[in-house]
């Protein structure tokens, strides 16, 4: 029997946790996200796409780090485009950037504590939440090691710990599995499924098998537009024998992209 958490039974006043309509976001001068329509609900969503598809730019816009150039973007029922007050939405966000910088002299615990403080968590809840986040990513033994002494995979896990420390309603992870060894990736998938029970998780990745194993939903974008959204099984069903790829999911992925490019080329 599973414990039903309060968040699962709470009523919401919005139809989608993340809702983008005709979203356009610039990366420098280039319009990296161009007219994207996306609606995400609770669950784990895998964001796939070739290099330069606009995944990272989309993540930044969803994390409210960059301002959309056009379109509408609603997070947790609140509009986050333009000059809106972002404080309330940001309290419910967790974000792991693709390349995240850190202060090398901080220990893992100080780093996660500092991020928890920036996320305006109640003071009394911080030490417990920090310990729990560090435990969940398996860094308990390294909690008091300085960030500069950590390996690439450990840094990544410290980054995941800061993203989940405030139990976010929207968790955005940009390439979280880079640098993780196979065993840690399995643990990470477990963590994703766990978090995805009552929050909306968007994971950007190049590894199709990660998406199939851990996600409830696949989002494929190319050149800043939505190409496909469906379940992993639907993605697998898209591929035929003639498509490139070593697994059924990879064949589905390349079939979808090939079809989209053919349509765009016409």
């Amino acid at each position: 029997m599973r414990t039903v958490s309060a968040a699962e039974t709470a009523t919401t006043t919005y139809p989608w946790v993340v809702h983008a309509e005709g979203l356009r976001v610039r990366a420098g001068r280039h319009l990296a996200v161009d007219g994207l329509d996306l609606a995400l609900d609770t669950g784990v969503h895998g964001l796939l796409g070739p290099n330069g598809a606009g995944k990272t730019t989309l993540m930044r816009a969803l994390a409210t780090v960059v301002k959309p150039a056009g379109g509408r973007l609603t997070l947790l029922g609140e509009s986050v485009d333009g000059r809106a007050d972002l404080r309330r939405v940001r309290r419910g966000l967790g974000y792991l950037p693709q390349q995240f910088g850190f202060y090398p002299r901080f220990t893992v615990r100080e780093f996660v504590e500092y991020m928890a403080w920036l996320k305006e968590m109640p003071k009394a809840a911080v030490p417990g939440a920090v310990q729990r986040a560090i435990d969940r990513v398996g860094l308990t033994a390294k909690a008091d090691a300085r960030m500069k002494t950590l390996s690439g995979g450990m840094l990544r896990r410290a980054g995941i710990a800061q993203a989940i420390v405030n139990d976010p309603a929207v968790l955005l992870l940009d390439e979280p599995t880079v640098g993780l060894d196979p065993e840690q990736r399995l643990d990470f998938r477990e963590l994703l499924r766990d978090v995805g029970v009552d929050s909306c998780v968007l994971v950007s990745t190049h590894l199709v098998e990660d998406v199939v194993a851990a996600c409830t939903d696949v989002v494929l974008i190319n050149e800043g537009r939505l190409v496909y959204q469906g379940t992993p099984n639907d993605l697998i069903a898209q591929g035929g024998q003639g498509d490139a790829g070593d697994s059924a999911a990879e064949r589905g992925y390349s079939a979808l992209l090939r079809r989209h490019r053919a349509e765009a080329g016409r």
Binding site: R90, W117, K119
Partner: peptide
């Protein structure tokens, strides 16, 4: 110059 700018910029305390 702020190495953690992307992390900091997405938090409610930024401003």
């Amino acid at each position: 110059h702020d190495p953690a700018w992307e992390l900091v910029a997405g938090t409610p305390a930024a401003g």
